[in-house]
Amino acid sequence: MELATFLDGNHVRLRSLDLGTYLHAAADGINVRLDPERASVNSAWVVHRYENPANMYLLLYSTAFGRYLSATNTLAPWGQRGYRVEQREFDEPEVYSIMWQVIGPANFVVLRHVSAGLLRANGRRRFNWNSGVTFQFRGSSNSHLRHELIDRLGSVNFIMCVRAGRYARLTPMLANLPSGTGNTLYIVAIHSQSPAADELRYPDIDAA
């Protein structure tokens, strides 16, 4: 899809093909986040076509706050790849960090920053097995374990998952802990509003 497809002043939504979530302008006017909700003013961005003597660029500003989608040189949070993007003001004649180019085939869009970095939905989290907290927990109650983690983390905004081995996928803990393995269990607490939480899959217990 070419830049010509993006008409100046039009509204667009940026949806990840991988995760199915939309890029939202966060309520603090600075951060951006991934969210499954499409029908939100925070998910809409306005096209601002910008031309200098060398090139035509795509700028995108939030319909919620009017601030521009900007690349940064700040590393993404622990467990994610690449660098952060955020909202910022367009406060100089030319702001390098908010200038994007459109590349890719006709059926989807790839946004590339002028530094050659690509805008990517950062939903893949790589767990560090050398970090975290080890503690002894007696019993098998899912709810008792959750209360233990609430006390230790100081937060209720997390989803408990289990990982059955170093390369296993995360599984939401929907039942009590198993009682017969005899091995250490690796429990991962994922923030309920994080991209990793959007990737979790739950069984349809009512399916025939």
Score class of each variant (00 low, 15 high):
7 L>M: 13
8 D>G: 06
9 G>S: 07
9 G>D: 06
9 G>H: 13
10 N>M: 02
11 H>Y: 12
14 L>P: 05
16 S>A: 03
16 S>W: 12
17 L>T: 08
19 L>E: 12
19 L>P: 01
21 T>N: 09
22 Y>E: 06
23 L>R: 04
24 H>S: 10
26 A>Y: 05
27 A>D: 13
38 R>Q: 07
40 S>K: 13
42 N>E: 15
44 A>Q: 13
44 A>L: 11
47 V>I: 09
48 H>T: 03
48 H>W: 02
49 R>N: 07
52 N>Y: 04
53 P>M: 10
54 A>Q: 11
57 Y>E: 08
59 L>W: 09
59 L>S: 10
59 L>E: 13
61 Y>N: 12
62 S>Y: 15
64 A>I: 04
65 F>Y: 15
70 S>H: 07
74 T>D: 11
76 A>L: 14
80 Q>N: 14
84 R>F: 14
85 V>M: 05
93 P>D: 12
93 P>M: 10
97 S>F: 01
99 M>G: 03
101 Q>K: 15
101 Q>F: 11
104 G>F: 03
106 A>K: 08
112 R>G: 04
114 V>F: 01
117 G>P: 02
117 G>T: 13
118 L>F: 15
124 R>T: 11
126 R>C: 04
129 W>L: 09
131 S>E: 15
131 S>T: 13
133 V>W: 14
134 T>G: 06
138 R>M: 09
139 G>D: 01
140 S>M: 13
144 H>Q: 15
147 H>F: 07
148 E>M: 14
148 E>Y: 01
151 D>A: 13
152 R>S: 10
154 G>V: 01
158 F>S: 01
158 F>I: 00
164 A>W: 08
169 R>F: 02
171 T>C: 02
172 P>Q: 14
173 M>S: 07
179 S>D: 10
182 G>W: 00
183 N>Q: 13
185 L>W: 10
187 I>F: 02
187 I>V: 13
190 I>W: 04
191 H>R: 09
191 H>N: 15
192 S>V: 11
194 S>K: 03
194 S>N: 05
194 S>D: 03
197 A>F: 02
200 L>N: 00
200 L>P: 05
203 P>N: 04
205 I>N: 06
206 D>L: 15
207 A>H: 11
208 A>V: 12
